[in-house]
Design a protein around this nucleic acid. Structure first.
Length: 208
DNA sequence: TGATCGATGCTCT
DNA sequence: GAGCATCGATCAA
């Protein structure tokens, strides 16, 4: 199955908030040895640099963990959290600027059985919507379902096997909702920034 | 349906 | 040594 044109490197070279909107509705595809999985992005959060206390790049200088976040846009920033989970970000902003967009939820499109296997879930036949949404309605869930781990750290998302496609039709801003990011209460003033974006009334978001 | 809590180990101070 | 861009189980209602 095809999900529109592959996004080119130049697609990622735009303002981080514009990129956050633009990523909604695009399709993440991973061609792994075990098979293809694909999902439409329905929820994201953006993390900016020195003005954003919630960002891993807040200190302004790269570390071994965050170096790819300070690199050129369009690459995968994968980090390990809470001792057991991976999360996948799309690096944003120009080379040298540490910004990124966290993928928080997908609508599974292809490889749903493989996603369920990776998530150690069983599906009814046919699968129920509640079973499908719980495969990818959270940042660590979607990383696990898509087979994303530390191995994909730094991967350019404009090349297979892990890449982004345009999707069927662009998402108008009128169908996007925004609000504060999840689980960044520690971030003082940045906790209130409305930097989470999701598709209104979409069943696959982590929180409506 | 929502609140609470434990698991688990890396990252940075 | 402290804290974390989470998840799933459990319990209350």
């Amino acid at each position: 199955m095809r999900w529109g044109k592959a996004l080119s490197q130049s697609f990622f070279n735009q303002d981080t908030e514009d990129l956050a909107y633009a990523l909604l509705g695009t399709v993440l595809v991973h061609d792994a040895p075990t098979g293809r999985t694909a999902g439409r992005i329905v929820e994201v959060e953006m993390y900016r640099g020195v003005l954003d206390r919630a960002a891993h790049s807040f200190r302004g200088t790269p570390t071994s963990r965050t170096q790819v976040m300070f690199g050129p846009p369009g690459h995968a920033y994968v980090y390990f959290i809470y001792g057991m989970h991976y999360c996948l970000n799309v690096v944003a902003a120009a080379d040298g600027v540490g910004e990124a967009i966290l993928l928080r939820a997908l609508e599974p499109l292809e490889g749903i059985e493989l996603m369920a296997r990776r998530r150690q879930q069983t599906l009814s036949n046919p699968p129920r919507i509640s079973e499908v949404k719980r495969l990818t309605n959270g940042p660590a869930k979607l990383a696990q379902a898509m087979g994303v781990t530390r191995e994909q750290y730094g991967w350019p998302l404009f090349h297979s096997p892990l890449s982004l496609y345009q999707g069927k039709s662009p998402v108008p801003r009128s169908s996007v909702a925004r609000g504060p990011r999840i689980n960044v209460q520690y971030a003082q003033e940045a906790a209130a920034f409305e930097w989470r974006f999701w598709l209104k009334d979409n069943a696959f978001v982590s929180r409506g």
